[in-house]
Design a protein around this nucleic acid. Structure first.
Lengths: 148, 148
DNA sequence: TGGAGGAGGTTCGTCAAGCGAACTCAGGGT
DNA sequence: ACCCTGAGTTCGCTTGACGAACCTCCTCCA
């Protein structure tokens, strides 16, 4: 039972959830991945309370996951939009993993949204593999080792 | 901008978050993957309020992600423990994705917990690939298609 | 036989977070 | 001069999280 002695306080899962684990945050990011950039669009699509949305967007900008970019459409005044940074883009696998689980267990295997490889058009999915190239089926194929 | 017309209410990300998106839920599952099975161990390690923990465990059992298994250690009365179901085990990639992001951006690339392949000992990673076998680097290599 | 003690909760009062509706403020269009 | 729209802020209410205290079995030990 040595795993029970692990220092959970510096666990990366807890750290990541402290950053993106609040209500609406991951849904904001889902929309960002689908191309949404403006406050009003986030608000209309998600239906989140504006005050909460303001808070989540500010938090994501603080964390460097989104950045505010000023822009000006013709015939409109200057506004700013929210764009994913590299740090934000790297949350894409997390979103995909949530989507794949929901597709399997909540949508009866019927994916409302399909993600395809831009180059070849084939379906994209997440896989666990080891550095030697073997497929890893799940937690039973794995050992966890504390480091430090 | 056709993506903006997608019906987000049946999005699998939102569905999955409705099931595991509350505070503590994914941390409970992290402990379950590390081998924790008993109420008192979850409570002691996580430090979550007991009432919340009771509620989260009951919810996970309701959803079929954990199951309560009665057992009896010698010299002790009968108790029950919480074990992952297949449905729960399939959330492993989600936990791994959160961990990998935290390792990269919060722990300076220094993983507090290392996950290795049981058979060969090599490090285990999540990768995005397409069915044709190409590696997918991120959201820019991808197109999203509504289905239905 | 009668505590003591631990597992697995429940109850309670307080405090933070999320909620919808209303309001604000700046700039552009007419 | 007035209205409209995007991007918020403010406000009162409700829901959820929190820690401390309490409860109920059951077993062990004296």
């Amino acid at each position: 039972m040595s795993e029970l002695l692990l220092d959970r306080s510096r666990c990366s899962v807890a750290g990541t959830l402290a950053v993106v684990g609040e209500k609406w945050t991951l849904l904001v990011l889902r929309e960002a991945f689908l191309g949404v950039r403006r406050f009003a669009d986030f608000q209309r699509i998600l239906g989140a309370p504006k005050a909460v949305l303001t808070d989540r967007l500010a938090g994501l900008v603080d964390q460097g996951i989104l950045r505010r970019v000023p822009y000006q459409a013709e015939g409109e005044r200057q506004r700013h939009e929210y764009r994913l940074t590299r740090k934000g883009i790297d949350l894409f696998p997390t979103l995909v993993s949530l989507m794949e689980w929901g597709d399997r267990y909540l949508a009866d295997g019927d994916a409302p949204l399909e993600i395809d490889h831009r180059d070849c058009g084939a379906r994209v999915h997440l896989t666990l593999t080891c550095d030697a190239g073997h497929p890893v089926d799940g937690v039973r194929d794995v050992t966890s080792v504390r480091r430090g």
